[in-house]
Design a protein around this nucleic acid. Structure first.
Length: 203
DNA sequence: CGACCGATTGACT
DNA sequence: GTCAATCGGTCGG
């Protein structure tokens, strides 16, 4: 039996919650993306929370031109270029003026995989788990780039929509964020326990 | 304006 | 496990 509202956009109030409360709730939600005539879906399985001025690892630690989108009203999309090579996508959370966002690190592809392989430039002989098991791979698979920065989820060709289920605390793993050099001890990463689509093996 | 540095990835030992 | 690619953001001079 399917959940009511499957694949319908999440309500606006969802984005207004505090970042650390919202982040685990994002697990099981889906990214919806219309790319030309094709509609793409992927279920979020791994995220990281980035707070504002009290989080040295966050781009919003200082309010700059780049990070200003993180201070917008929850539901904004923050995309930035990482290492000059990959795009990373975030869900801005909280009320306007609060500089918080959730980085989407990994997702499970839903439906036909052809477009995902094509967007990734991956040969079909490669395992599907390589399609979205990292923040840069995820954006590439979905065709997300800087054009989406400062747009709002649910207003264009990109949305966060309801999935088939939400995960309880027992189903969610929690640990340190990956790839940062500051505040490395903070457990702000959340993932779906046992998912084969994570960016790395669970430890 | 020059220098440094990443919220990463893929190729390679 | 190691390491280079690559470039916009940020900051110091």
């Amino acid at each position: 039996m399917k959940s009511p509202g499957l694949n319908s956009p999440v309500p606006d109030a969802f984005f207004l919650q505090p970042c650390l409360e919202l982040a685990p709730q994002l697990l099981g939600k889906r990214l919806w993306r219309r790319q030309g005539k094709v509609e793409l879906l992927a279920e979020i399985v791994e995220v990281e929370a980035y707070l504002g001025e009290r989080d040295p690892a966050s781009h919003a630690f200082r309010k700059t031109e780049r990070s200003s989108v993180m201070f917008e009203r929850g539901g904004a999309c923050y995309v930035y270029l990482s290492y000059g090579m990959n795009y990373c996508m975030n869900v801005v959370t909280g009320k306007e003026g609060v500089g918080e966002a959730v980085l989407i690190r990994a997702a499970a592809p839903i439906g036909a995989l052809d477009r995902f392989y094509k967007n990734r430039g991956l040969d079909r002989s490669k395992p599907a788990r390589l399609l979205m098991n990292g923040p840069g791979k995820l954006t590439q698979a979905l065709g997300i780039d800087l054009k989406f920065n400062r747009t709002r989820y649910g207003e264009g060709d990109l949305a966060i929509v309801e999935g088939e289920r939400s995960y309880s605390k027992a189903d969610i793993g929690r640990g340190r964020r990956i790839g940062i050099s500051k505040a490395t001890e903070w457990d702000y990463r959340f993932w779906v326990k046992g998912s084969p689509w994570l960016s790395r093996k669970e430890t």
